[in-house]
Structure formats: C-alpha cells, structure tokens
Design a protein around this nucleic acid. Structure first.
Length: 308
DNA sequence: ATCCAGGCTCCTG
DNA sequence: CAGGAGCATGGA
C-alpha cells in the first residue's frame, strides 16, 4: 500500500530554471540516490524516521517559477511529514534565496558574467545532508570522479537501506551507526583505500557521538567553521569548504584547491595552464559573499564541457 | 607502463 | 608557516 500526498505547490524566488538543476544532477558523479526521468526528480529521504519518496517537477518558467512537490510513503502522510518534506526541498534546492545580490556581484567580472548568462537561472543545489556531503568529499579526495562514483554507489549498497514504492526501489544513505557497523575492513574490501576507509568510519563515529556536529557550526564565520571541521582527521581545507557549500548551504566558501576549479579557472581566464589555489582565491575575491555560487557555476560549466 | 585524479598528513627548512 | 614528500588506489 502506498499513500500519496496532495500536490504541494512551491514558489521559488526568480529567476530559477529547474531544468538546469536537473541537468546538473544528471551529470554529477555524486548522483546515486536521485532519479530523474520525464523532467521529474525522485528521491527517498528519511525525515524523523519516516521514509518518504519525494517527487518534484517544474510547472513554471524561469521568471515565474513554480514547482510541484508530491510525497509518496508506505504509511499515512501527516501534515507534519508534509511540512518537513517541504522544508527539506526548500533547503536543498535553495528556493528561498534571493539571487539578485549575486547577479549584482557577477557584473564586476566580464569573464564570469558571460558564463553566468549562459546558465541563466541556475541555482546551486545542495547534497541531501551535510553527512552526505562529507562522505562524498572524503570519497572524492584525490581520485577521479568516475571511480569516486563507483565507491559512493558501493557505500550506499553496503548501507542497505531502501524504500520500495510501487515496484521501484529507492536507496537511502546509511546512517552513522550503520557505517561504524560496516567498518573499515569491509570498505577496504570494496576498493576503499586504507586512509579513505579510516576517515569515513572516523567521521561516522564522530557524527554518532556528536563530536562532529554540523548544527554547532557558524556558517557566516568562515574561520571558525573551517577550523572546527579541520580538527578532524581526514578533513582538510578542501573537504571542509566543500561541506560548507554543498552540505550546509553556506554561500561564501570555495574549495579553491579543487583540481576541477583550478582547471576551469585556467581556461576561463586564459592562463594556458591550471590556476593555482592562490589564483583561484584571488580571482574570486570580488565575489566575496557568493563564492559558493561561483564555484557551483564553474562545476556546472565543467560538467557541460565533459558532456560535449 | 606512466601519469594523474574534485587531497590529507606529516615532516622539513 | 610555506613547501614538499609520501601516501593508497584505480582509470585512461
């Protein structure tokens, strides 16, 4: 038996082009638990121990955006469940953010301005949770994204949580306790390097005990939040910045050491080589306040490059 | 084979 | 404190 909520209309701030979000997700190597077909997004989530399937599709335009959210669940759907699903979607897709201040900042840089207009209406989408962002960042450290995707898929399979809705199976991220239970040896047996396996289980343990607590971070205090995160073994600056932007939804973090960003910045600004980390930080200085968005646009551009 | 990949830690000078 | 070696594991 499957229960279905009424359609819940959502009204994102404009401009917002949901089809660009779907395009990003379709090509992103981190996309494992999301499914996209017929211009519709599907994903299972765990909200307060209720397993729900979320579906989301656009019924509006870039200048007059509107989304339809619907919830499917194996148990009756309450108003509380609807409210938390709506909150989750609003957070993950950043529907409430006013993009106009970003658009103002973009003007300062002709090179970025052109890129921006080629993706007009694109808005950063977060990973499903800070936890997911952290695992993905650790998995992605120093390996190619194809292999990283393979490892993430394996990681989720090992977790084993699924939601079955109308003959379809949707996977869920393993919770920290489950990851500790899986342990380093099992991860090692599935092509995780010694250090990756160690960092991941360590992170899971610290999340379970509350020693690593995303709620206690202050997103607007970059120094504080980065210092807190990098206290943990296996979380360096790149990983911390990635978690802040893609997991927490903080708007002013850029993993400037990222090889992909260094590559596209080198191309965009015609350096004839990869930009250095310092150059990425220097070039993004005018975007202070919105550097996470800039990073996201560049990653989108990288993905589009690869598609062609 | 060889080089490199969405880095991190630890050790130099 | 800036820079670099060493690291672990696959892909192309």
């Amino acid at each position: 038996m499957t229960y279905l909520s009424p359609i819940i209309p959502l009204h994102p701030t404009a401009p917002y082009d949901f089809s660009l979000t779907l395009a990003y997700l379709q090509h992103a190597p981190s996309t494992i638990m999301e499914q996209i077909h017929d211009h519709t997004y599907y994903r299972a989530i765990n909200l307060d121990n209720h397993l729900l399937l979320i579906t989301l599709r656009s019924v509006g335009t870039t200048e007059n955006p509107q989304l339809h959210l619907q919830i499917h669940a194996p148990q009756p759907i309450t108003d509380v469940m609807i409210a938390s699903a709506q909150d989750w979607v609003t957070k993950i897709f950043q529907l409430q953010i006013n993009p106009y201040p970003f658009m103002e900042v973009v003007r300062a840089d002709p090179v970025f301005s052109e890129l921006y207009h080629s993706m007009y209406g694109l808005r950063p989408v977060l990973m499903g949770s800070p936890e997911e962002a952290l695992y993905w960042a650790i998995i992605g450290q120093q390996i190619n994204v194809t292999f990283a995707q393979k490892l993430k898929r394996k990681f989720i399979e090992l977790g084993g949580y699924t939601l079955n809705i109308e003959e379809q199976i949707y996977t869920l991220l393993p919770d920290p306790a489950r990851i500790v239970e899986i342990g380093e040896e099992t991860l090692r047996a599935h092509q995780f390097s010694r250090q990756k396996a160690h960092y991941i289980v360590l992170a899971a343990e610290n999340m379970r005990t509350g020693n690593l607590d995303f709620h206690s971070l202050q997103p607007f205090d970059n120094e504080q939040s980065l210092n807190r995160l990098t206290q943990h073994h296996g979380i360096g600056r790149w990983t911390a910045e990635y978690v802040m932007m893609r997991g927490i939804g903080a708007r002013d973090y850029i993993p400037a050491a990222d090889i992909g960003l260094r590559s596209i910045v080198g191309k965009q600004y015609q350096l004839g080589r990869n930009a250095t980390e310092a150059e990425v930080r220097e070039i993004t200085r005018p975007f202070t306040g919105w550097r996470s968005w800039v990073a996201f646009y560049w990653w989108m551009a990288l993905q589009m490059d690869k598609v062609h």
